[in-house]
Design a protein around this nucleic acid. Structure first.
Lengths: 287, 287
DNA sequence: CGTCCTAACAGCGA
DNA sequence: CTCGCTGTTAGGAC
């Protein structure tokens, strides 16, 4: 618990706020550990993240956890039996780790399950903890689009969607959760670099080849992150940090270092209202 | 008629598309000449400018013209008796001049009145010719705001409205017809210069003194234009052009010439999606 | 270079 | 450095 709180010093420094790869890892670990166990008690330390009155969350009590599944940047905690399920969004940073005992009142959220296990959540700044009736997860998550690695987010889907939005910039297109769900400002840098496209390139200006490789660039970048596991700034469900940070990226967070493709110095720019890291040669400015 | 058509060579060159001063002049002349006379016949040469089927315009026939009044950039032709009135908007340029005889079929619109008079309209590119039921003129004109020189467009009104839109740029604020009606991209230059404010200054960044002088800057600039009469590029109701052009402006259309206040060279910039002429010293860039 | 519609974009607060 | 809201800006059509 002390080590846990000490990490709060990282607020504002850690650029990873949990995107689809981290959500996939966490969902798998939670499912492994909690599947079949009943929710016995919980404590909601704040109202702000909730979409319904705190008392409504009693509808989760006594129900066995079916599984935890990734839905873009959201974790969907599915319970058996009638009633709503639980949606968790990391917002601007979250620790979600296993815990087995009632905790002190500074702990923001805790959920206890049968078998002496459970989990606790701490939001670094803010996040979301919502109830969603079965079949309403997507709607409660903000009408988000298809998730990479599912059939819905196919190559054809992306190409067709891109055709309908020729004036949208590439980065804005890929980080808009209504287009496809799970990419934020952490993995976007390498996806754009993989495509050899500047983040502000209009979708209508992508070459046929780039349009064709869009789907692959997304899935390659995200699946490599899943394989690497949790990074050194974040915790997995068991409170363990990983071994890697930005050195695993092609260009992300590597300003001043050489582009792995052409050796040019990577630069940091502002694009779509947030930082972007690009190789100015591989990804020349549009227009 | 030949001289009239020859002026069509000016399409695209003339920056004045009739704003409140020209509308005021035209409305007065039309009222003087046509008041009390009945509409005996008309011809609508195009459907595009109309807001109702051409046959509906028969509702104007036989009714005496009461008066023509300015409503921002619109001319409102009020008729006596029940039925709609006629609204005329110069759009991207219009000649509206007196005519007394039926004209050739190239004439876009003509309206004949008792007493061997009437008027014809030619739109340089496009414009609007609408019917409005009594009391619905403002609505048909696009829910426009109060008109300068009327009590509604008072100093207090402008100051209060400005407070509600702190993030709007000065030029966008003054040329938005829903805020106040009658200013376009012709007179806006001198109004901003009179205020000593850059066109992109946010309303919330205007000094108390500038806010206080806003109303005066608008009315001074527009009333001087009314006093000068029609300019050398346009026609009054009697087909006469005026004697003045841009040399009467402080900064408008005077790029390269000295600012009358400080002598600095006036420059042309792009602001709020159209050209603006400013003195870079009297009107420094905001932020 | 006017008006209207729509989409993209930026700023703010939580 | 996320989401959602709101208001401004930019582009195309007429």
């Amino acid at each position: 618990m002390r080590a846990f709180l000490d990490q709060s010093a990282l607020v504002g420094l850690n650029p990873a706020m949990a995107e689809l790869p981290e959500i996939i890892i966490l969902a798998d670990q939670m499912t492994d550990r909690l599947s079949g166990r009943e929710l016995t008690s919980f404590r909601l330390g704040m109202d702000k993240p909730l979409n319904r009155p705190p008392a409504d969350y009693d509808l989760l009590l006594g129900r066995p956890l079916d599984r935890v599944r990734p839905l873009g940047k959201w974790l969907v905690v599915d319970f058996s039996g009638p009633g709503p399920n639980l949606l968790v969004h990391p917002g601007m940073g979250m620790d979600l780790v296993e815990s087995s005992v009632p905790l002190d009142k500074e702990t923001q959220f805790e959920f206890h399950f049968s078998g002496r296990t459970g989990f606790k959540i701490r939001y670094w700044w803010f996040g979301y903890l919502r109830l969603a009736e079965p079949g309403r997860s997507r709607a409660e998550a903000g009408d988000i689009g298809p998730v990479p690695f599912t059939g819905e987010c196919s190559r054809d889907y992306l190409v067709e969607l891109a055709r309908t939005k020729p004036r949208t910039g590439l980065k804005a297109f890929l980080t808009n959760q209504k287009n496809l769900a799970g990419i934020g400002n952490y993995y976007i840098h390498d996806i754009c670099h993989c495509l050899k496209a500047h983040p502000l390139t209009k979708m209508g200006s992508l070459s046929p080849d780039q349009l064709d490789r869009l789907h692959g660039a997304v899935e390659t970048t995200l699946s490599q992150a899943v394989e690497r596991g949790i990074n050194s700034y974040e915790f997995d469900f068991f409170g363990r940090t990983g071994q890697w940070s930005s050195e695993e990226f092609q260009v992300g967070y590597r300003a001043g270092q050489p582009c792995p493709v052409c050796g040019t110095e990577i630069i940091k720019i502002k694009a779509a209202n947030a930082a972007s890291y690009i190789c100015p040669v591989c990804q020349p400015e549009p227009n």
